[in-house]
Design a binder for these strands. Structure first.
Lengths: 253, 253
DNA sequence: GAGTGGTCTAGACCACGCG
DNA sequence: GCGTGGTCTAGACCACTCA
């Protein structure tokens, strides 16, 4: 027979903390409210600061908290839905596009991009930098790679770089017939430059959306867009997406 | 004029470590190879184990490493692409579906799900559990919520629960006319039950895909699918997605 | 039982935002 | 200058896998 096991699977402290804090956030805190600082919270729960931080990291990952150095930890608003898969058959920069073209240079892309574009590994391609703002907050940074071969009628434009050239490249793309586009979403961590643009620290979790634009039977452009994973919910499909985020630690049985 | 600033922004040790390790992985290690253990690695780089672990965590998040307690740290294979947005106008369980129905119970769903289904907060709905395997590895766990009102002709089926009932529910859905579906992708952390099914620890990063199925002008079913973020690349759109993952710490200018 | 990664502690100092 | 979160250390013990 043996004794009944009550605490058969003692969960880690940080995980239990996460649960407790989640419930507290749901019931006792308003969006934007400032939490006690980490040292106080750790003392209150009787754990080391590192352990408390592990719980806070989880909650930040889940979009429940926002931490800013020198300021404090605040309760985050619900994630904003950002449309990614609508306008299924439009080039970047088409009417109604929510992106802001920032710059355009001619540069050798990363090897993985060169492979997808089927250009040589040392062939420079037009590289357009764009950014996306939603509700006053930067939510995404994009690099759009366009082989010069895709926009032959661009040659002769004077501006060697800058926002004007970026817009010219986008306009040139509109003149092509878009066959199809497909995307992939994966988790990544923000590189230094993206992190700066997204107002985060390097290594912050991001959702990387890679989109390939097909025209004339080949990849005419490739977009690598980096979204803040803590604040964004990417929506695809016919309507605006579903207003749900996962319920913490609650099974359905 | 003042002195030139050489090390103006000294990057954190763990970030530098991540970069060094990434390069080592690219050049000196094969997929599946086992890395030295954490204590040795930390000593080799002259840092505390916690600092080394911070770098390894980043790399695991990026899908470059796989760590298993009691075993060791191995070099991960490239992420597998899993199609999410294809068969745009099909119900779950349609022909060619890659999911494995496991169970079906009648239970009260989380409040957020009840809201999306427009059922009462205390109304039980049919809850189908399915799992998805790719390349011999579990990649996703799904909960499919189906209000009983969506499948009225199901009443009378005897099996109160189990895989048989799950399949019956899916078959009943096929008989409805699907108007449209839309999805959203966001970052989450695995709850205990999902973590177990995905062979990960609780809190592991996951990509949560929420899909709403519309029929007869209302939400006939709601799917919440949890994908392993470390091993999966979710693909949407016409073709199979793009075989790219972001180049570590390399700007395009 | 030996060896691995996972958790936790109690400190220290640093970088940043703001008054 | 003060308070915040971010980084880092040097330990300890635990949970797990496998020979």
């Amino acid at each position: 027979m043996g004794t009944t096991q009550l605490e058969a699977v003692p969960e880690p402290k940080y995980w239990h903390l996460r649960t407790v804090l989640t419930e507290a956030l749901d019931s006792e805190f308003a969006v934007g409210e400032i939490l006690p600082n980490e040292r106080d919270l750790a003392a209150r729960f009787g754990v080391a600061r590192a352990t408390l931080r592990q719980a806070l990291e989880q909650l930040e990952l889940e979009g429940r908290l926002q931490r800013r150095r020198g300021v404090g930890t605040t309760v985050a608003p619900p994630r904003v839905g950002v449309a990614v898969g609508t306008e299924q058959h439009a080039w970047p920069g088409a009417a109604g596009d929510v992106w802001q073209a920032a710059d355009c240079v001619l540069a050798v892309p990363p090897a993985t991009v060169a492979a997808a574009l089927e250009t040589g590994v040392d062939t420079p391609v037009l590289t357009v930098r764009r950014s996306r703002v939603s509700h006053g907050q930067p939510v995404a940074a994009e690099l759009l790679y366009v082989p010069e071969a895709s926009v032959p009628d661009l040659s002769g434009i004077d501006a060697p770089s800058g926002a004007a050239r970026a817009r010219a490249v986008l306009r040139a793309l509109q003149r092509l017939e878009l066959e199809s586009r497909d995307s992939a979403v994966e988790l990544g961590s923000a590189r230094a430059d993206d992190a700066k643009e997204l107002d985060r620290l390097p290594g912050a979790p991001v959702l990387v959306v890679t989109t390939r634009f097909l025209a004339d039977g080949r990849t005419a452009a490739l977009s690598v867009a980096t979204y803040r994973a803590d604040t964004c919910r990417l929506t695809f499909g016919d309507a605006g997406g579903v207003e749900i985020h996962q319920d913490p630690e609650r099974a359905a049985s």
